[in-house]
Lab assay of single mutants.
Amino acid sequence: MEVRTIKVFTTVDNINLHTQVVDMSMTYGQQFGPTYLDGADVTKIKPHNSHEGKTFYVLPNDDTLRVEAFEYYHTTDPSFLGRYMSALNHTKKWKYPQVNGLTSIKWADNNCYLATALLTLQQIELKFNPPALQDAYYRARAGEAANFCALILAYCNKTVGELGDVRETMSYLFQHANLDSCKRVLNVVCKTCGQQQTTLKGVEAVMYMGTLSYEQFKKGVQIPCTCGKQATKYLVQQESPFVMMSAPPAQYELKHGTFTCASEYTGNYQCGHYKHITSKETLYCIDGALLTKSSEYKGPITDVFYKENSYTTTIK
């Protein structure tokens, strides 16, 4: 009895394709271990004539594949690729409408935090270190965002349907971005203890939790000093293409032309909904596939993004 075979390709990165001759009487799992086709788990399936010449994702289970996976995804987590594939199996079914010149995501599976993050990423200057993220990001900007969303979920250790947080998501993504040249110098002034300067680099240099107003941050924000008295913390120097200011959701007025974009969060910790506000020729609110415009805006804002380049204080 002759062994019926077909020729397929296996890959971990969709760049390096490895030619395989597979036995049609055995499952993919018996031949390769966990195997995925377009995100779908085909591990328990036997090869079919229609699979001839198709590319299958496999887990990096030998040295060659491990090197290829690390170079593309910059992670050695053995569960990463499987999590990416199972997320992709959902995100490829989502709709990605162009809204006001940006790629958004039609609401499904509690994905409003991903839509808000995706919209924000198209408006701030950011370059990702893992080629996987950078490639998928370019495709997302062009309207094909399924891979990018699935990668975000995998890097953030999230599953489809789980509630997510924009600030946490951005923080994970910033860790995989090139923020080497970003720098922030802060000064804390206390009447009792004097003053202390701190220099922050990388992710810490672009994120701040405690106030939404970048102007206020430049002037000074009140913080408790270690001595128990009130101290003032203010920005001395900022070198970065953008800054992200966050605070627990509270009524906040966004003035046209003073910011790049913002995240609105309605609801409580267990259950809520994100919308995205962007400042173009007027203010726009993007909620999944829905767009509304207004000249002014007041609502429960939790993150505001500002364009920056270089700032030095005039406070002496």
Rank of each mutant, 00 (worst) to 15 (best):
K95S: 15
Q123E: 07
T103Q: 05
F9G: 06
S213H: 11
A177H: 03
E253F: 12
I124H: 06
S79D: 12
G267L: 11
V243F: 00
P34S: 12
T258H: 10
C227S: 02
V166Q: 03
N157M: 08
N100F: 03
F9H: 14
T120N: 15
F217V: 06
T11A: 07
N100W: 11
N178M: 05
N129W: 15
G299C: 11
K44L: 13
L235T: 01
F32L: 14
S50K: 11
Q270K: 12
C149F: 04
T103W: 07
S25C: 12
F80Y: 01
E253K: 13
M207D: 02
T292E: 12
D77T: 07
S171W: 15
M244F: 07
T76L: 12
V160I: 09
T313W: 13
S181R: 13
V221I: 15
T5A: 14
M26S: 13
N157A: 01
A140F: 04
G164V: 07
A136K: 02
Y84G: 04
H256C: 15
Q31M: 13
P97W: 15
V12W: 09
E239R: 10
T103C: 09
Y311I: 07
N111C: 04
T27Q: 11
T312L: 13
G39V: 08
K93C: 13
V185H: 02
N187H: 09
S246T: 00
L179P: 09
A87N: 14
F259G: 00
G267I: 11
L291A: 15
N309Q: 15
E144Y: 09
L37V: 10
A142G: 12
Q20A: 10
T5P: 11
T10V: 13
V189F: 07
T192R: 12
D109H: 05
I277W: 15
T313D: 14
Q122K: 05
I223R: 01
Y57F: 12
Q237A: 12
I286Q: 02
M24H: 09
T258D: 12
L200I: 08
R141A: 09
Y214V: 05
K219S: 10
V21P: 11
R184N: 01
A136H: 07
I286L: 07
A108V: 05
Q175M: 06
A117R: 02
M24A: 15
A146Y: 06
F217D: 01
T19Y: 10
M244T: 02
K127M: 07
K275N: 06
P34C: 15
Q31E: 08
Q20R: 12
T232G: 02
S213I: 04
L121H: 04
M24G: 10
T10R: 12
K44Q: 11
V3H: 14
V12L: 02
A142F: 11
Y297E: 04
L163Y: 15
R167V: 03
T232Q: 05
T11S: 11
G202P: 01
L59R: 06
M170Y: 00
A87P: 03
L153W: 10
N147D: 15
S279R: 00
Y57E: 05
T5L: 12
Q30H: 14
P60L: 03
T35L: 08
L200Y: 12
Q123Y: 06
Q251L: 12
T159F: 09
T313C: 14
G33I: 07
E281R: 06
T55V: 11
E253P: 09
K229P: 04
I315T: 15
M24W: 10
S294T: 14
K127H: 11
T10G: 06
A146K: 01
Y113T: 03
K307V: 14
N89W: 12
S246W: 04
G194L: 03
A247Y: 06
E215Q: 06
K44G: 13
V21R: 13
Q30G: 08
H51P: 02
F32M: 13
K92S: 11
I301P: 06
Y269V: 15
G101P: 05
V3M: 10
G220K: 02
K191S: 14
Q195C: 14
F80D: 03
R66M: 13
M207P: 08
W94D: 06
L212H: 08
M209C: 09
P249V: 14
A154D: 05
K183T: 13
F217M: 07
Q195K: 14
T266N: 06
L173D: 04
I223V: 15
L163V: 10
A108F: 05
V206E: 00
Q270T: 12
A142S: 13
T198K: 12
K219H: 05
T302K: 01
Y274M: 07
T199M: 11
Q222P: 14
A247H: 11
K7P: 09
A231F: 00
E253I: 04
T19L: 10
A177K: 03
N129M: 09
N157W: 05
I105Q: 06
A205N: 07
S50W: 12
S310F: 15
F9T: 11
S86R: 12
Q237H: 15
Y234M: 09
G288D: 06
L37Q: 14
Y73K: 05
L126G: 08
Q237T: 08
V3R: 10
W107V: 06
L121T: 07
S279A: 05
L290A: 13
Q251T: 15
K54V: 14
Y138W: 14
P248K: 07
M209Q: 13
L81H: 10
N89M: 15
V21M: 14
V3A: 14
S181P: 05
G53P: 04
C156Q: 03
N110W: 01
D38S: 09
L88F: 06
A69I: 10
D23Q: 12
H48E: 15
D287Q: 06
L163H: 10
L65N: 07
T260E: 08
F9M: 14
K191V: 14
Y155M: 00
V185P: 02
P131W: 08
T75K: 09
N268C: 15
Q238L: 01
C156W: 00
T75Y: 04
A150N: 02
L200R: 05
V203E: 00
T116A: 12
V185T: 08
Y306S: 01
I105L: 03
K158P: 02
H90C: 13
T232W: 09
T19M: 06
Y284S: 10
N178Q: 12
H176S: 04
D38W: 10
Q30I: 15
M207C: 09
V21G: 11
E215S: 08
V166A: 10
E2Q: 11
T75N: 11
A231K: 02
T198Y: 13
Y28K: 06
N147F: 02
T120I: 15
I315E: 15
Y84W: 05
P34I: 11
F9N: 10
F70G: 05
N16I: 00
E253D: 12
T313S: 14
V99M: 13
Y214I: 08
T169V: 12
T64R: 12
L118T: 03
T91A: 05
A69C: 10
N14L: 07
Y284D: 08
Q197F: 08
I277P: 07
S213N: 09
H90W: 09
E264Q: 11
A154P: 00
G272I: 00
C227T: 03
C261Q: 03
S294I: 15
G202K: 03
D41K: 07
G272V: 08
L291Y: 15
T120C: 14
C261T: 00
Y269R: 15
V67K: 14
K201R: 15
M170D: 00
M209E: 05
K183A: 06
E264Y: 09
Y28H: 04
V3T: 14
H256T: 11
G257P: 03
G194E: 05
S294P: 08
V99K: 09
T282Q: 13
E144I: 05
H51Q: 08
W94K: 02
F56G: 03
T278W: 00
C227L: 02
T314M: 12
T76M: 14
E239A: 08
T226H: 13
Y252D: 01
D63S: 14
Q134V: 10
E168V: 12
F305E: 04
T55I: 10
